[in-house]
Design a protein around this nucleic acid. Structure first.
Lengths: 170, 170
DNA sequence: TATTGTTATACTCTATAACTATA
DNA sequence: TATAGTTATAGAGTATAACAATA
């Protein structure tokens, strides 16, 4: 899950590859979806951290920013639910975004338990840059796929995890 | 990357879902491959831990077992390279498998720096059960996909992460 | 000098549980 | 009683760096 994955792997951190003498037998691994998802996740993660200028931002925090921009005042439980992040973990992520000055919590006057999340002007500015970097990062990673193939890949992935029906987006 | 993900999420751990009042706007998230890979990874992870009888075993350790069975005497650097796990992390994983009595390190006589990994009889027995559980778990997760679609999904995923060319497997 | 494996340390993500305040 | 949010704590995964033994 990685979720997310390692800590500061901006540069390809692992040790130099040794001579590969003979190819190894992968047995059933290549037939397992989990095996490929894991590798894809690692590749995406590595390119994400090296593509995003702001080292403090991880994919989870990016998603929070996007949802907060598109849904001003969204509350933490909604974010938790949509992003499949525990509410206790969400607190820490929002704490960090607030410490960076990118978002603000605003207590709701109707239901004083709730705190809506709002982007600050600074957050909006930074998110704009982030989005550009991340779209570029995605393009780099998926450049071997045609537009149709990418859509097909996403569509197949959506069928293996439970989620709310998506509204059509062009 | 998450790889792997949380700690002990055998039971759907997170809090009860609250009423979803109005659908939220996901903005660009649904167009991002990383967003879907992350969700798929989480879904796979959750089902993995609830499907595998042995709670000590994670997907990384499972892969090590499979490769050690198919390639007796494989060395840690090869495992690290193939599974994209740092060699220092690999040590800990092998330590745990050895403590469980499932694998053995055997010092090579030609190159005394190297230690080949070998399954024990116990390890072979347990791996047999594990494989059955994991094949079943994969079937459950991918049951919405036809055989062709699953092959297509895997093939598309393979094109977004760097890897050695695979030998054909039927 | 380079490689294999190891130890030690630290950081991130996430889960769990107990808690506050509001409803 | 239930919900939104918080705090505290712990565990897994991984990275980094330094190291020992061997080549």
């Amino acid at each position: 899950m990685p979720d997310d994955l390692p800590a500061a792997a901006s540069r390809r951190a692992r040790t130099k590859t040794p001579k590969r003498s003979e190819p190894i037998d992968l047995d059933i691994l290549p037939s397992l979806l989990g095996y490929h998802i894991r590798h894809a996740q690692i590749a995406l993660w590595r390119d994400f951290v090296s593509s995003v200028g702001e080292p403090a931002i991880r994919s989870g925090m990016f998603s929070i920013l996007v949802l907060s921009e598109a849904n001003p005042g969204i509350v933490q439980t909604q974010l938790s639910q949509e992003l499949d992040i525990d509410k206790a973990s969400m607190v820490q992520l929002i704490d960090r975004l607030e410490a960076l000055g990118w978002v603000q919590r605003r207590r709701s006057s109707e239901d004083r338990r709730r705190q809506g999340i709002h982007l600050t002007a600074e957050g909006r500015k930074r998110l704009k840059t982030l989005k550009r970097e991340i779209v570029e990062h995605e393009r780099k990673l998926t450049k071997q796929l045609s537009r149709t193939e990418l859509a097909e890949l996403i569509s197949l992935l959506e069928r293996i995890y439970p989620h709310e029906p998506r509204r059509a987006r062009t």
